[in-house]
Design a binder for these strands. Structure first.
Lengths: 170, 170
DNA sequence: TATTGTTATACTCTATAACTATA
DNA sequence: TATAGTTATAGAGTATAACAATA
């Protein structure tokens, strides 16, 4: 044994512990991980992962961006965007259009098939939200939404960026 | 080009998208990932990772459990608990006590040093909660807490299990 | 020389399965 | 033979950095 202080006399207070793991921050982390996990399970039937779904949403919301722009917006390395776009392009969901004026970069766009999948994704997302909010009345859901939106704003979280990506870290 | 449907006529509706990424489920996932990330950054000064902090809390709350019991409770493989306990034991925070009646298993306990660190961890957790709740009044925080606690209960989430562990998946 | 995209590599985290010891 | 713990191995996911093409 090294420097084992081992003073058994000190009683560890379980109430204190319960209070901590009952904090808003803890509940948010717990519920957030749960929601993300369930969403991931749900979109398996579309053969999508959360990062892929997030990328589809970004491209749909702001078509024509370069991969670098998207990488910057997402706070993720460009090499990761490459791999993601590769997979989606092979499946005909996204296309890279050459920019004739600067042939170094691509403009990313959804294909028709991509938009179709995005609509199915939207339906799943609404079902998911319904499942996560189970147990709350409509009024309570709106109340919760107001509080969460204010927290997100206070924390400076960007809209539309899925937590599967790290938001602008550092 | 393979089966590029490419019907430009279909206008992708940004409002629809905004609504989805504005759902309670999305905000929960986003805020939860943010809270978990910030907590991880905060406990770096204690040289702890979130899984380690979670294990310390579990051992403190229910001392004397075997590694298998903890693994089951956390829904994580026993081999992972081994590695976690190894690290904490080397630092003199946790001890494995042989059970004389069944010498196959260990009873896990915090050392005095472990309890001391846990108190520092508690202080950081309270600071963290304060930072995450910034922008809400005391009344709003209680309101939020009530809503989150009901959601967690409705989803069957166990108390005190940090999302760094996957809760009882499958 | 600077920038976009790409590829190669390595690292971290985690799960699965084989192994040891006690029962 | 069954169970607690351990070790070995492999896989997914991700970041870093070197590289190629274009400006």
């Amino acid at each position: 044994m090294i420097s084992g202080v081992n003073d058994e006399a000190v009683t560890s207070p379980p109430q204190q512990l319960a209070r901590e793991s009952d904090s808003n921050a803890f509940l948010l982390a717990q519920l957030g991980a749960h929601a993300a996990q369930r969403f991931a399970e749900r979109i398996v039937k579309l053969d999508l992962t959360p990062p892929q779904a997030g990328l589809l949403r970004i491209v749909a919301a702001q078509p024509g961006q370069s991969q670098q722009m998207i990488a910057g917006q997402l706070g993720t390395p460009a090499s990761r965007v490459v791999a993601l776009v590769d997979g989606l392009q092979e499946r005909g969901l996204v296309e890279r259009r050459r920019n004739p004026e600067d042939r170094r970069n691509y403009a990313l766009h959804l294909t028709g098939k991509g938009r179709q999948l995005l609509r199915r994704l939207g339906r799943l997302a609404r079902q998911h939200d319904e499942a996560i909010c189970a147990g709350l009345t409509e009024g309570e859901r709106e109340q919760l939404h107001g509080l969460l939106a204010r927290l997100a704003a206070a924390q400076g979280l960007p809209a539309r960026v899925h937590p599967g990506y790290r938001a602008i870290a550092d």
